[in-house]
């Protein structure tokens, strides 16, 4: 295509991908390969039977849960590690395994880990820091929520986002990043701890998949999206999530005494890498 100034550029479309007709005309071998790839990309949820036995419904094998707190991204996960998981007796009770083109082949590490506390077993915390491909998001949500009892369930999602994604009529420099914005499902009755996400901003990725599922299945859910202007995980962004957990303060204790130390450890690695002269 020639532009206004005459140079020829290859056309890129926001909406459609090229070679869209090829998929229809594939032979059996292609289909076989496609099936194998699909199988490899399947999402697996594993629960630790000993840890969940006491809270599993005998009838439908679902795990009882009153609050499911999810952290998507390194800042959200770091916040939970520093303020919540380091105190109280949190034990890993489940994990989600998946493979996609960005996974490291050698490591068999779970992509998401689910924790619960021994003295308050109905709160589950899920930390998710790895990349989940677009075609795996729906499956992830369906499979994880299939294991959790829906009655009386409340979902809180904490999610990282880059400031570059935030649309506002004002300049992005005047908004004072990092800051929180909320989105809630129709069933969520309480007041969010921060302003709601303005139009025309949207949320994508795992947080969107979970919130869509909750909206459609009528589960009360709230998403706190933290917009940050720092590329790597940093302590200031992690602290921004604090108000998001205040509604859960009776169930989840925010431990602030050791958190500074842990936060320092979490971000130390990045600091060392980002400075050319150390």
């Amino acid at each position: 295509m020639a532009t206004f100034f005459g140079e020829v550029v290859s056309v890129y479309s926001r909406a459609v991908e090229e070679d869209e007709e090829d998929v229809d005309n594939e032979n059996e071998e292609d289909q076989q390969i496609r099936r194998e790839i699909e199988q490899k990309r399947e999402v697996h949820v594993n629960w630790c039977p000993e840890a969940t036995q006491s809270i599993t419904n005998p009838s439908d094998r679902t795990v009882q849960c009153s609050n499911f707190v999810m952290a998507v991204g390194p800042n959200a996960a770091g916040f939970l590690s520093a303020y919540v998981l380091n105190s109280g007796n949190w034990v890993a009770v489940g994990s989600v395994m998946l493979w996609n083109e960005r996974s490291k082949d050698s490591s068999q590490q779970p992509s998401c880990v689910i924790y619960r506390q021994s003295d308050c077993p109905k709160v589950l915390i899920c930390q998710c820091t790895c990349y989940i491909a677009e075609d795996q998001l729906f499956q992830w949500t369906e499979k994880v929520f299939a294991c959790i009892q829906q009655r009386g369930l409340n979902v809180t999602v904490l999610s990282d986002c880059s400031m570059a994604e935030y649309k506002s009529p004002d300049s992005p420099f005047s908004s004072g990043a990092p800051f929180l914005r909320a989105l809630k499902s129709s069933q969520y009755g309480s007041q969010p701890a921060c302003p709601l996400l303005e139009q025309p901003n949207i949320v994508t990725g795992l947080a969107a998949a979970v919130l869509s599922h909750c909206q459609v299945q009528r589960i009360p859910a709230i998403l706190y999206q933290c917009y940050s202007d720092v590329l790597l995980p940093d302590s200031l962004t992690m602290e921004t999530y604090k108000p998001a957990l205040t509604p859960l303060s009776k169930l989840v204790k925010l431990d602030t005494c050791q958190s500074t130390e842990i936060l320092r450890k979490l971000v130390q690695f990045n600091e060392a890498q980002s400075n050319l002269y150390t």
């Binding site: 677009e134 075609d135 998001l137 729906f138 499956q139 949500t141 369906e142 989105l183 809630k184 499902s185 129709s186 709601l196 996400l197 303005e198 139009q199 025309p200 901003n201 949207i202 949320v203 994508t204 990725g205 947080a207 969107a208 998949a209 919130l211 869509s212 599922h213 909206q215 459609v216 998403l223």
Partner: peptide, 25 residues
């Protein structure tokens, strides 16, 4: 229309006037 064939996204009601603090997901 809830399906795994589409990439998930959520936002606030796109047809509400911007002044209205609409909360419809």
């Amino acid at each position: 229309f809830h399906t795994g064939c589409l990439i998930p996204m959520v936002g606030n009601n796109p047809y509400a006037p911007s002044a209205d603090n609409s909360t419809e997901l």
